[in-house]
Design a protein around this nucleic acid. Structure first.
Length: 270
DNA sequence: ATGTCCACCTGCTGGC
DNA sequence: TGCCAGCAGGTGGACA
């Protein structure tokens, strides 16, 4: 699931359940995702009060009154379940609040991670070092993008997936943004004109905003039993549409780059 | 430094 | 119906 919009949706869904609440129980059921959980994760969470929730790139942030932030990444298959009726396989971490709410972090493929890090020095959290600008923030714009891509010969698609260039895009939204900007995913990043980079920045904004808006509509129903955060049905223009017609009269094609499927229309994306 | 590929892990789907 | 190859939205490390 989780690119930036899914993580943002997840954080927004967790906020009303966790913010201001005391964690009365934190149960680790399987401590080894991509990286092992901190040894004492359960003890360090139990009794803490959650002061704020946030997001950086594709990471969710849960601040506590003990000066620690729980940083979680959902990998490929991770998601939080709110008030599950019963626990399921791959519910690796279960948190209960003083208000009687229960959260389960489920991640079948275990590419995700959970870490505790001092809130005051989150910038030093190793995965955050070297991270590029937030795609919806002011530091991601045509000028900064042009500077970051100058002279680069790798494909523009690969550069959008590089979290050091821009932090939060994944395969789906990189593909969708390039389609909307009418830029070929195969084009060498350093050869994309400033004018077309401006179009790309705008397309990234449009695609992410629409996805977050669609996720938001799902969040409103989060309280349903076994509600799972971050899942929503957004209409995608090209992703997963190999062989289907493009509005321009062309046909959507697929190729693999770096082991990732890329969908595009060779007729209108140049 | 840069570009490219692959491993990590489990579950689901579609074709035979 | 059953089996199995192929595929899945991320990241980081190895290699040239």
């Amino acid at each position: 699931m989780p690119e930036l919009p899914e993580v943002e949706t997840t954080v927004r869904g967790l906020r009303p359940v966790l913010e201001g609440q005391r964690i009365v129980r934190a149960q680790v059921r399987r401590p080894d995702l991509r990286r092992p959980f901190p040894e004492d994760l359960g003890q360090r969470l139990t009794g803490a009060t959650v002061t704020a929730l946030g997001r950086r790139a594709k990471y969710g942030l849960v601040d506590t009154d003990r000066g620690d932030t729980m940083v979680f990444h959902l990998g490929m298959s991770g998601h939080w379940r709110i008030d599950p009726a019963e626990l399921r396989p791959h519910d690796h971490l279960v948190i209960e609040t003083g208000a009687g709410r229960r959260l389960a972090l489920n991640d079948a493929r275990r590419f995700g991670s959970v870490e505790l890090w001092p809130t005051a020095s989150l910038a030093d959290y190793p995965p955050f070092r070297g991270l590029g600008p937030e795609p919806l923030g002011p530091d991601f714009n045509a000028d900064s993008l042009a500077a970051a891509l100058r002279g680069r010969t790798a494909s523009i698609k690969a550069m959008l997936l590089d979290q050091r260039i821009v932090a939060g895009l994944g395969n789906i939204y990189a593909v969708e943004a390039l389609y909307h900007a009418r830029i070929s995913p195969k084009r060498a990043a350093g050869t994309v004109s400033r004018k077309r980079l401006a179009r790309l920045v705008e397309a990234v904004h449009r695609v992410l905003d629409a996805a977050i808006a669609a996720g938001g509509s799902t969040v409103r129903t989060y309280a349903r039993p076994d509600g799972e955060l971050g899942h929503f049905a957004l209409e995608l223009a090209v992703y997963g549409r190999e062989g289907e017609p493009c509005g321009c009269g062309g046909t959507v094609r697929r190729y693999v780059e770096g082991g990732r499927s890329t969908f595009w229309c060779p007729k209108c994306q140049r």
